[in-house]
Design a protein around this nucleic acid. Structure first.
Length: 490
RNA sequence: GAGCCAGUAGCUCAGUCGGUAGAGCAGCGGCCUUUUAAGCCGUUGGUCCGGAGUUCGAGUCUCCGCUGGCUCACCA
């Protein structure tokens, strides 16, 4: 870095502004490569970050990288002049430069720009990790890859400069969200915004972040979900609403959890969870097709076929299928014995629903690689879902499982205000027993339901996990540009 | 929170049995007007994560700690 500061000063002494104000960029690297026939011998001006330099005495090659990729630049002393050539020799990898010149192909066949003039656009003072690469048999071999995960996440800007495949993941993330949005918009959904700062948090079981509003002199919570607000909108007469919500949960972090994450929630009036299953299949297939051009995706070494229809199993059927035990008529005691027999650890505080959930999570879920809807959940775990129309003790809820992980959660929404109030009271009891994650009573939400909410189907999709799935990334940190990190201590 | 692994030059990494700290790339100085992991010659660069201990001697062995990664637990 010291050397680079000195160079910066020398450049200034030569009357060069190392940080000029603008540059006219007529073409991007990829456009030039894709339209070589039309552009050959045409004047272009390109700009980007210098990623490699090969000095050849009185000539030089360098590759510059712009948003779309890289292109080689060829410079000759007698073309750009002695002084500029000396200046060029002072540049470093990482500097941003602009080139005016003509498109041509080198002796070895690489499409390049023959420089007539160049301009320094921004001096880089900090050396980039040097990554070298070479093509061999069409495969890209990378040397000295910038692979330190901590540095990659902390200095994402460097990661993006140096690892092009990282950039691709985030481009796809945006395309995925765009594909979802257009799918919903075409089907008559209204995109809405609901509060992030909430006086009462609800809609999920999780611990919140707490903050404080001075003027109101009260605690506010960063939302853990937006469910209850969206359903108020259904009460208000909107029949199809959705929101891409940044939600916040004050919990541990791992491969699947970041404290802030993106959850898509949507609600559809006059529909139930069966309708929603069809909808989810269609949505996933549509998005995969839009973004990847296929509904057969690869994730973690498995080929996963998202083509509808997906397998559908009730939770009881799924457990029976993978354990051979029919638990559909068991009471809590029998369930406990079954769990012991299956070597699933359960604690005394767990109720029947929780035990079933444990057995499922332990023995069934990881085995569901191909998309599968699991439906009809025990009531205890689902205080906002409507009671099953036929099966007592269950609710009309489903989760699609893909690659051993749930990617969404949906139910026929509970719209009976009296039942809802009782469920909240149940949750309050759990709270009093010390369950910090049990939900709070939301009187206003009950009031809204008392005005009458149409039968409604609701869905939540973990967007980060969906992006992981569609881009074959193993960690949520690989699909969030700036994942939460411990403070950097030096 | 537990287990496993790692931390050595700007980057990627080697370092044997405990015996003077290494390579490639990058950097710096030279040569080179179609190269492409450019090449050739020369050269700079180190708190070996920190601390303590064992030892004549520790990058290497022991203990404690720090940081990170992975797995598990917790958690949607």
């Amino acid at each position: 870095m010291k050397v680079r500061f000195e160079k910066l000063n020398r450049l200034r002494e030569l009357g060069i502004n190392p940080y000029p104000y603008e540059y006219e960029q007529t073409h991007k690297s990829k456009e030039i490569k894709e339209n070589f026939e039309q552009l050959e011998k045409q004047a272009v001006s390109v700009a980007g970050r210098m990623m490699t330099v090969r000095l050849m005495g009185k000539a030089a090659f360098c590759d510059i990288q712009d948003e779309q990729g890289r292109i080689q630049i060829y410079l000759r002393k007698n073309e750009i002049g002695e002084q500029d050539f000396e200046i060029f020799k002072m540049l470093d990898i990482g500097d941003l430069i602009g080139i005016k010149g003509e498109v041509f192909k080198t002796r070895t066949g690489e499409i390049s720009v023959f420089a007539r003039e160049f301009k320094l656009l921004a001096k880089s003072l900090r050396p980039l990790p040097i990554v070298k690469e070479k093509e061999e048999d069409g495969k890209r071999i990378v040397y000295d890859q910038f692979a330190d995960k901590e540095m990659r996440y902390r200095q994402r800007y460097v990661d993006l400069i140096v690892n092009p495949e990282v950039k691709e993941v985030f481009v796809k993330r945006t395309q995925i969200i765009r594909a979802i949005r257009s799918f919903l918009d075409e089907r008559g959904f209204l995109e809405v915004e609901t509060p992030i700062l909430q006086p009462i948090y609800g809609g999920a079981t999780a611990r919140p972040f707490v903050t404080y509003h001075n003027a109101l002199d009260r605690k506010l919570y960063l939302r853990i979900a937006n469910e209850l607000y969206l359903k108020r909108l259904i009460v208000g007469g909107f029949e199809r609403v959705y929101e891409f919500a940044k939600d916040f949960r004050n919990e541990g972090m791992d491969r699947f959890h970041n404290p802030e994450f993106t959850l898509l929630e949507l609600y559809v009036a006059y529909k139930d969870y069966k309708w929603m299953m069809d909808f989810v299949e269609q949505l996933f297939a549509h998005v995969a097709y839009q973004v990847l051009g296929t509904t057969k995706i690869h994730f973690n070494g498995n080929e996963i076929d998202l083509t509808p229809p997906w397998q559908r199993l009730t939770m009881y059927e799924a457990i029976e299928k993978f354990t051979g035990v029919d638990i559909s008529n068991m009471d809590e005691k029998q369930l406990r014995e079954t769990a012991d027999k299956l070597k699933v650890e359960v604690t005394p505080e767990m109720g029947a629903g929780k035990i079933i959930d444990e057995i499922f999570g332990e023995l069934v879920e990881p085995k569901l690689i191909q998309p599968t809807f699991i439906y009809d959940y025990p009531i205890e775990m689902s205080p906002l879902a409507k009671k099953h129309r036929e099966k007592p003790g269950l609710v009309e809820r489903f989760e699609p499982i893909i690659a051993g992980k749930e990617v969404a959660n949906a139910f026929s929404e509970l719209n009976d205000p009296i039942d809802q109030k009782e469920r909240f009271l149940e949750q309050l009891k759990l709270r009093e027993r010390g369950d910090e994650e049990a939900q709070m009573m939301d009187e206003d939400y009950i009031r809204a339901l008392e005005y009458g909410m149409p039968p409604t189907a609701g869905l939540g999709i973990g967007i980060d996990r969906m992006v992981m799935l569609l881009t074959d990334q193993p960690s949520i940190r690989d699909v969030i540009l700036f994942p939460q990190m411990r403070p950097e201590n030096k």
